[in-house]
Nucleic acid binder design. Structure first.
Length: 377
DNA sequence: GATGAGCGC
């Protein structure tokens, strides 16, 4: 025998919302006793067929609701009291475990008249039943839509003041919402939630417009919902691909044939690669590479030396208060100065020596002849 | 920081 409860007694105490005689919503129950009215005709068979047909072709029958997030203590009778205020209810069923009969936390509410479902959705969604906000959706027997996750989005960093209704109101601007919920714990909002749209277009629209925006002064994240399993899997994949230590910025590629290696050097050396100039050259032994670097450093040094040969003057006992400009003024009369520098400590204080470089040796010679040993006074 | 659960007589 079914454990469903006939709500006819409670129903009799409710104010009639439509002036007509209340229909006892006993359609789902097989329990009868001598005093209750005859089990209601509930939804006429034809109406049920029509509803089912409508549900099958994707449109809504407007009369069948799924009511979720119910406390296990919620009964058909309680739901009848609430939903029959909207319009005559034809039947209610709280789904229960077949063995333990414990409530599975959801129920079906069927209305007699079309559009009462819509009104119930508007007026009762997220209302508290036994202290818990219920979540109302259209009854959708075909599980395909729920399984694909199409149009399902995830929102995080929600202000604690944002509840189901507020979340629904914010996100209803982007499309038709099938289901919406803020995750809650003992202390209220957990700061994240879900909005499942009818279409992926609506979801994309919501992501585009709300991701990174302020909601109650908090910058929220909005993205496609990724099931936990998939997410963990992605994290693992990412870990596997990432190096465990920092790259030193160089590596080696071995080709099978010399031609290919040669070609790589020709084509890739100095090429822009992720914003950096790529260095591609024949791989050298460490000692070979060190030798080459030492030689090129030596060459650069020699070039500098020869460049300054005969034109660069070393000066010492430069007055402490001199700056480069003042030094330049002193030495300008003897030729064209190409560079001029007083050496300084990191603190900026003059070290009392420096360099003046002329464009030609005879200029430098003239400066030495005129300035060497000269007192600044 | 965080990625639910869910569809019947």
């Amino acid at each position: 025998m079914s454990a469903s409860v006939s709500p006819s007694v409670q129903a009799a105490e409710l104010p009639s919302t439509n002036g007509k005689t209340e229909q006892p919503a006993a359609g789902e129950t097989t329990a009868t006793n001598g005093t209750s009215p005859k089990p209601a005709a509930a939804t006429p068979a034809k109406q049920q067929q029509a509803n089912q047909a409508a549900a099958n072709d994707g449109s809504q029958p407007n009369t069948s609701l799924y009511v979720g997030e119910l406390d296990p203590s919620v009964t058909e009778a309680m739901l009848f009291e609430i939903f029959n205020m909207i319009g005559p209810v034809s039947s209610i069923r709280v789904c229960r475990d077949a063995v333990t009969r414990r409530s599975l936390g959801y129920a079906y509410v069927n209305f007699l008249n079309s559009n009462d479902g819509e009104r119930a959705m508007d007026q009762l969604n997220y209302s508290l039943i036994r202290g818990r906000p219920c979540r109302i959706m259209w009854s959708q027997r075909d599980p395909a839509l729920r399984r694909t996750g199409q149009g399902n989005i995830f929102i995080k960093n929600l202000d604690e003041g944002i509840d189901n209704k507020a979340l629904h109101d914010t996100f209803s601007a982007f499309g038709n919402i099938l289901s919406c919920k803020v995750a809650v714990g003992e202390g209220g909002s957990l700061g994240y939630g879900f909005v499942h749209y009818e279409t992926q277009e609506a979801a994309d629209n919501a992501i585009e417009h709300v991701n990174g925006m302020l909601l109650n002064d908090k910058k929220v994240y909005v993205g496609n919902h990724i099931p936990r399993k998939e997410r963990l899997q992605k994290i693992e994949e990412a870990k596997a691909r990432l190096p465990t230590c920092k790259s030193r910025g160089f590596g080696f590629v071995n080709y099978e044939h010399h031609d290919a290696a040669q070609n790589a050097v020709t084509e890739l050396h100095d090429m822009d690669f992720h914003g950096q100039k790529l260095f591609v050259a024949r791989a050298q032994k460490k000692t070979e590479r060190e030798e080459e670097l030492r030689r090129s450093y030596e060459a650069a040094k020699n070039e500098k030396l020869s460049k300054f040969e005969g034109v660069n003057l070393y000066l010492k006992n430069i007055p402490e208060e001199f700056d480069d400009e003042r030094l330049r003024e002193e030495f300008a009369p003897f030729g064209t100065i190409t560079s001029c520098k007083i050496m300084r400590a990191p603190s900026g204080i003059s070290r009392g020596f420096g360099f003046v470089c002329y464009s030609a040796p005879d200029e430098a010679n003239k400066a030495v002849a005129e300035m060497n040993g000269k007192n600044d006074g």
